[in-house]
Amino acid sequence: MHHGNRHGRSEAAREAVLQAADDLVAEIGYARVTIEGIAGRAGVAKQTIYRWWRSKTDILVDAFVADAVQELTLPDTGSFGTDLRAHLEELVRFLEVSDAGAVFRALVGQAQHDPGLALRLRSEILPLLRARDRVPFERAVTRGELPADADIDLLVDRAVGPIHYRVLVTGAPVTAALLDA
């Protein structure tokens, strides 16, 4: 008999909870999602959820981290321009279209009046996204396409900042022209 949430049935239950939380946020919005609703969708007992997580926010942070690692693939095209373009297109799809993007938008909104979540967003979620956003630039430095002393964090801000701003603030579409620029 295996114990812990890494094996067999409990791992499957954990996956089902994360998936249910994702689906529900995308379908009905963060405010209307409840632990009961997640339990019902996942086919697990509410008690099971409370054994692993304290709140729906905790579930959604875990769901987002799992999704971001899975979905934000980083193709190596051999050149900085095409690497960056591919990554930015992927980021737009992720933020605008995927269930994980709906979760991210909900968490960013919720973080404005939830200091605990704001802390987790800044300590767990944003560094994960930042690490992925840095990859095309780090590869370019390695290949000699960017100078060794390039300020990668500033370059990342300039590349992804306009995308986050449109997705999270203005709601304007992210166009091919914006990505080209």
Score class of each variant (00 low, 15 high):
Phe64Trp: 11
Gln112Met: 13
Arg41Trp: 09
Ile163Lys: 05
Ala176Pro: 01
Asn5Arg: 13
Val141Gln: 03
Val174Met: 04
Gly101Phe: 08
Leu128Ala: 01
Gly101Cys: 05
Arg54Gly: 15
Gly29Glu: 05
Gln110Trp: 01
Ser55Glu: 06
Tyr50His: 14
Arg41Asp: 03
Gly171Ala: 12
Phe137Asn: 01
Ala12Tyr: 08
Glu71Phe: 06
Thr34His: 07
Asp114Pro: 01
Gly101His: 07
Ile49Phe: 01
Thr175Phe: 03
Phe64Met: 09
Ala148Asp: 11
Arg158Ile: 08
Gln47Tyr: 00
His3Lys: 10
Arg105Val: 06
Ile125Val: 15
Glu15Gly: 04
Gly116Trp: 12
Ala16Tyr: 05
Asn5Lys: 11
Ile28Ala: 02
Ala148Val: 15
Val92Gln: 04
Ala42Gly: 06
Thr57Met: 07
Gly8Ala: 15
Ala68Cys: 08
Gly109Lys: 09
Asp23Gln: 11
Trp53Gln: 02
Ile152Cys: 04
Val17Phe: 04
Glu11Val: 11
Ala131Cys: 00
Leu154Gln: 05
Ala86Cys: 12
Val141Gly: 03
Ser123Ala: 10
His164Ile: 01
Glu15Pro: 01
Phe94Arg: 00
Asp67Leu: 02
Arg130Phe: 03
Val141Ile: 14
Ser10Met: 14
Leu119Ile: 10
Ile49Trp: 00
Asp99Arg: 14
Glu138Met: 09
Arg122Val: 08
Glu124Ile: 05
